Simulated assay, not measured.
Amino acid sequence: MSDNQPQQYPGYQPQEPYGPPYDRQPAPQPYDPYAQQQPQYGHGQEQYGQDTYGQDAYGQAPYGTPPPADPAAFPSQHHQATLTPQEPDARQHPQPARPGTTAAAPAAASTAHLAPNQRARAEGRSPIIAPGMQPAVLTAVLAALLALTAPLPRPVLAVPVVLLQAVTAAGWFRLNGMWPARQGIALAFLAGFTTDAALLATDRADAPVVAIGTLGVWCMFVLVLQLRNRSSADERMYALTAGLTSTALAVLASGHLAAAPHAVSVGAAAVAVATLARALPLPSFVSVAIALVAAAGAGIGAGQLTGFGTSGALLGLAAGGCALIGLRVASYDYPSRFVHMTAGVALPLALAAPAVYVLGRALG
């Protein structure tokens, strides 16, 4: 054994005075300031000072990080990442849009998929559109038919009344967004037609009893129809409500057939004039006032011609007010042209029928 080598003993491990040799030391790792784990934050940031683009808060990409594939996919984060250290106020006080930028383009694109009534609300416009002059002219024509046939025998008056009931039944279902609803429309129309037949077979004084009786029978038919409906509970309830209302309106329209002939003429004239006046291109409150005054004036004029007298002013005012209510209902929530040509034409006359019947008996 050489004198320069240390003596070996069992369990003895030689120690190296200066640590392990260089070839057994672990390889040093390159310094990476971004390799430190930082606390996690909310959506849109992976680490503090580093967003989902692989950029830090000042727009500098860390070493070895590829550029973003699609910066437009995250516009808000891209805007934050492009700020420079010389722009500390830009993060707190956003700059206004430069002149020439199309600020209205995003708003138009965001409302393009909406329905007309929803788009009108989003753009700050009224979703209510009145029927206009063309439906008003059709209402005036139908009212003129009622006024001219009122002095004639009742079967002749029943012809425009049946036409009014048909348009009322179809228009109400379309106004509620239910089209085609053939069975519901048919039931409502048959309810009105049955009421007309019963009124022709009885005296005018028995009109309330006849109307209530036929309305009860046909409402039961509407209920039976909805019991056969296999839709959801909400849809069945909605269809039942629309069917009952349409049936009631068709029965109410038969009030022209039960009212006194002179009252029908006065009321129809008032409805025609009020509807035409409401369709004039005037401010809303001015148009309503003019329509009511015109209805009262038409009532006086028709009363003088038919022998109803000056009390026709009150009847005309009441019929004109009911006509305006019918127009407002037909204008509900941005309706379609078909609604204006059905409900917008029929509802003013249908809603005026009870006033014509009651006031005609009270004032005549």
Rank of each mutant, 00 (worst) to 15 (best):
A248P: 08
A248H: 11
L249M: 07
L249V: 10
L252I: 14
A253C: 01
G255L: 09
H256F: 10
H256V: 10
H256R: 07
A259Q: 03
A260N: 15
A260C: 14
H262S: 12
A263V: 00
V264N: 03
V264C: 07
V264Q: 03
S265N: 05
V266L: 07
V266M: 08
V266S: 06
V266H: 06
A268L: 08
A268Q: 03
A268N: 02
A269L: 11
A270S: 13
V271A: 00
A272G: 05
A272Y: 08
A274V: 01
A274S: 05
T275R: 02
T275G: 09
T275K: 07
L276H: 03
A277W: 02
A277T: 14
A279T: 09
A279E: 10
L280V: 08
L280T: 12
P281T: 06
L282R: 08
L282Q: 07
P283Y: 12
P283I: 08
S284Y: 15
F285S: 15
A289L: 02
L292Y: 02
V293D: 00
V293W: 04
V293G: 05
A294L: 08
A295D: 09
A296F: 04
A296E: 00
G297H: 07
G297N: 14
G299N: 00
G299P: 13
I300T: 12
G301K: 15
G301R: 15
G303E: 06
G303L: 04
Q304W: 14
L305F: 12
T306Q: 06
T306A: 04
G307V: 14
G307P: 09
F308P: 04
G309S: 13
G309C: 08
G309H: 08
T310P: 15
T310W: 12
G312Y: 02
G312R: 03
G312C: 04
L314F: 11
L314Q: 03
L315P: 06
G316W: 00
G316T: 04
L317A: 08
L317R: 01
L317H: 07
A318V: 14
A318M: 12
A318Y: 10
A319L: 06
A319N: 12
A319H: 12
G320H: 03
G321E: 06
C322D: 03
I325F: 05
I325Q: 09
G326S: 12
G326L: 06
G326E: 06
G326W: 05
L327D: 03
L327R: 09
R328L: 11
V329T: 12
V329C: 10
A330K: 10
A330Y: 06
S331C: 11
Y332R: 15
Y334P: 01
Y334M: 12
P335H: 05
P335Y: 06
F338L: 13
F338R: 15
V339Y: 10
T342L: 10
A343I: 13
G344H: 00
G344P: 01
G344Q: 01
V345F: 11
V345S: 02
V345K: 05
V345M: 13
A346M: 07
L347C: 03
L347A: 04
L347D: 03
L349G: 05
L349D: 02
A350G: 13
A350M: 09
A350P: 07
A350S: 13
